[in-house]
Each structure stands twice: as structure tokens, then as C-alpha cells.
Nucleic acid binder design. Sequence first.
DNA 1: TGAATTCCTCTTGTATACATCAATGCCGGG
DNA 2: CCCGGCATTGATGTATACAAGAGGAATTCA
Lengths: 248, 248
Amino acid sequence: MAERESDRSVSQTVRAQLALRDLVLSGRLRPGERISELQAVEITGVSRTPVRMALVRLEEEGLLEAIPSGGFMVKAFSERDILDSIELRGTLEGLAARFAAERGVPSRDLEPLKECLNEIDGLVRQDPISVEAFSSYVALNARFHALLTELSRSPPLIRQIDRASALPFASPSGFVMAQSALPEARQILLIAQDHHRVVVDAIENREGARAEAVMREHARLAARNLRLALRNRTHLDLLPALALITSG
Amino acid sequence: MAERESDRSVSQTVRAQLALRDLVLSGRLRPGERISELQAVEITGVSRTPVRMALVRLEEEGLLEAIPSGGFMVKAFSERDILDSIELRGTLEGLAARFAAERGVPSRDLEPLKECLNEIDGLVRQDPISVEAFSSYVALNARFHALLTELSRSPPLIRQIDRASALPFASPSGFVMAQSALPEARQILLIAQDHHRVVVDAIENREGARAEAVMREHARLAARNLRLALRNRTHLDLLPALALITSG
DNA sequence: TGAATTCCTCTTGTATACATCAATGCCGGG
DNA sequence: CCCGGCATTGATGTATACAAGAGGAATTCA
């Protein structure tokens, strides 16, 4: 471990959580495999107490599953589970958009959203979209979704969306990088950006049903990406989280 | 402490979690109040380690809030928060109903649901509904909602619904007991039961949109109950969880 | 008298020792 | 050869000791 004493500012618990999450997402631990506390202690270099804390947090995040007799194992996901998680997030984001539309948002709160839109426009203008542009898109897309969620002004809903988006393959930007290898890449990005624009328009005009429906459909682009990526399995290495998928 | 050595079978963590949850829900701890680990140790009689575990679990349950500098405090909820939590649950249950309808469920899986319906019918038949009948209704209603959620056959969605229903005032049966003191009690129960029947019918006929819409509206009965209960504040003692509400 | 600083106390974060329980493998008997 | 029970091993659950940090109160200086 090179970064043993890195970041003395963050707690041991967080450090362990990050290390273990990477370990799971990288696929070095097979789904269903038990992850023992002592083993985790060896890997992370911190003691059992923060390791335990990290394991509990990762379970609540959805990456681990508690074993009835005690301890944790790496969770396994079917393709259906992932598709459902995406639909779930879309439903929640749709609710957020509806709340925003029905309750109204001051126009100055829409400013950051529109800035996001413009910046993304600048990215998708280039015809073969560069890998760096994809990377920037991921960041901007995450920002847009976060801002949109905030517009609901509903702490319980925001909390739930954050939790639903914690799984990497359910997050709004989960499968964007997978697109980068696809021939349909630019096309899909243009559609996604149109969704973004439409939902802002709907909120502005206080059209709740429209805003909700568009966000639901928007999430389904991620599902489409997943299916495409699974079909041409060429660049699956772009999606480390897919190591958790089982053939179920 | 009278029950110091009660239930040697359950873990200390669970015991602490139950004790602290009761403490919070009973309102003996004010919203915003810091809950120190040592204090919790005194109350529960277990040591700091399981207390810590219980606090983390209660935070993830949504009853506590982490203080940035460390430790936890009792979370405060506005009336709007509660209404949003109910709408949120309704949305998720609506999604579950839609999944069930669209994907189809074998008729033998609908049997338990229909049994529930019949049993509830027996309860709401009496005209002044007794308090015991209300109590039975709460149990049957919880059972119905759990069965319905299962029909989605979607582990991620089931998990999320469970988490959304963990807050007592967001759970399907959260405000049923509050009705018992209301003049509109029986009327509301009859409507709720009609919703139950309609959603089963919709699922049977694979009408996804109908099933979803009905479950959403069904949840709004809870919101209606909350508003009614808050208006005539006579029997607010039936709802211990309302101690968490702030005038925000 | 007010404000800043220092010290103290109480808090949580971390490490580790101990107890307990489950799983597994071995040994003996049928 | 197979099955059952027992012992051993290693896991997690629990308790506690220690360290570091935040918050508050008191004191001192301007």
C-alpha cells in the first residue's frame, strides 16, 4: 500500500470505506464472496472498529449484503436488478421534477441549470466527441441531475434519490462512459440533452406531468446504454461496476 | 432497568436500537437534541460499541441526523417533510404495482392478497368500528402492503420501499390509528379498502398505469388523515411519532 | 468592561483484548 | 463405507482503555 499515511485529515472509517468500495467495484472480490473483518483490516491497514463501520456503511450503500449468521458478503446483481434500479431512479427523479414544476421555482434557481445546459451544448457540438468531452459530460451531467434534484426542495426525496444513485450502475452518469465506445454515442447524447432542455422548460411552465414523464424516459436512456454495452462487449472494461453482475 | 437481562437471544446492538428508537419516538428527546453515546449507554445498559452501532443504524433509518463535528442528534421533521415522505412512498408503491401488473403475477400469488381483502372486509363491515378492529386493520393493512410490494419481484425496489416505510409516519399504517378518533373514520377505511381491491383488479388485468395511479392516490389517504388529525388535535397521543414534528 | 486566549472537560474516534458462537474437519462407531 | 458427535479453529459480537479534538468557561489583559 503506497498511500498508507495519505490524507491524515479524513477519518479511518472513511479511508476504509473508500478502499473497500474500490475493492468491490474493481471486481477483485467475487459476488457472494465473504469479506472478513480481519481480511479487511489487512487490506486497509486500519483497525477492526473503523473497518466494521465501513462495512456497515457499504451494506447500507447496497454494495454488501449482511450474512444472517454475521458478517458481510459482496452483493450480486442480475441484469434485471440493474434495469430496475435505473427505472427506480428515474421514477424518483421524475417525482423531484414534478415537485419542482408544481411548486414553482424562482427563476434565479433555474440559472445554474441553464448554464449546465449551455456547457453541455458546447460539448456535444463536436461531431466525433472526444473522450475528454465524454469525461466532461459525465461531470456536467452529474451536476445537472444534482441541481434538478435540489429543485424539489424536499429533503426526504433528495435523501432517497441520493441513496438510489449510490449504486454506481444506477447513478445518472453510470453508463455514459460506456457510450463513448458506441457508434450511437453522439445520437444518444443529443437525445439526453434534449431531455434536459425539455424538463427545464416543463418546470418553468409548471407542467408537472410533463416534467415527470420526461425524467422517467430520460433514465431509460441509461437502460438502453446498458443493453447496448452488453451487446458489443468490446469496451466493458470502462464499467468496473459490471463485475458485480451475475448471469441470473 | 427492569429488563436488563431480557431476551438474551437478541444482540446488544438490536436491544440498544429498539430502546433508543422508542426513546426518540416517544418524544422524550426533543428534535435537534444531541444524543451522546455515554448517555445512550446509561439508558440502554449496553456498552459503547453496540450503542454506536445502533446510532448509525438509526441514522440510516432516518430518525437521527449526523452532526458534522461528530455524534448524532434527533432529526426534526416539518409537516411538509412528512407529506413528502408519504407521497414518496406512494410513488414507490405505485411503481411496484405497475411492475406487478406489467410483468404479470401467477394467480396463486394473488391468493394471499385476496385473503387479506376478505379479512379486511369482515372488519369494516361493523358500523362503529371498534378500537380492536382498528388494531386488526393496522396489521392486515401492513400485510397487504408488504405482499403487494413483493409482487413486484424487484429486490432493489422492495429494499427501497422498506427504507422509505421505515419512518413511522411514512409507513402505510402510520396514520390509521389516528383515524380511529375521527368521525370520518369508517368512510376513509372503506375508500382505502376500495383502493386495495382496485389495485388487485388492475394487476390481474395487467393494467399498469391504473395500478400505479391507484396506489399513488391510496397513499394520499394517509396525507389526508394526517391533516385531519392535526386539525382536531384531540387524540394526538395516538401518534407518538408526531413528537418529531416541528412547526417549520 | 469587553474581548481574546488558555485551559479544562466532555465528546467522539480508534485500537485491542476478551467472550461467544458458528462452521468445519476429524475421529469413532455403526 | 457412511453417519454422527465432538473438538478445534476462526469468525463476529462486545467491552473497555486510550488518544485526539471540539466546545465552553474562566481568567487575564487591554
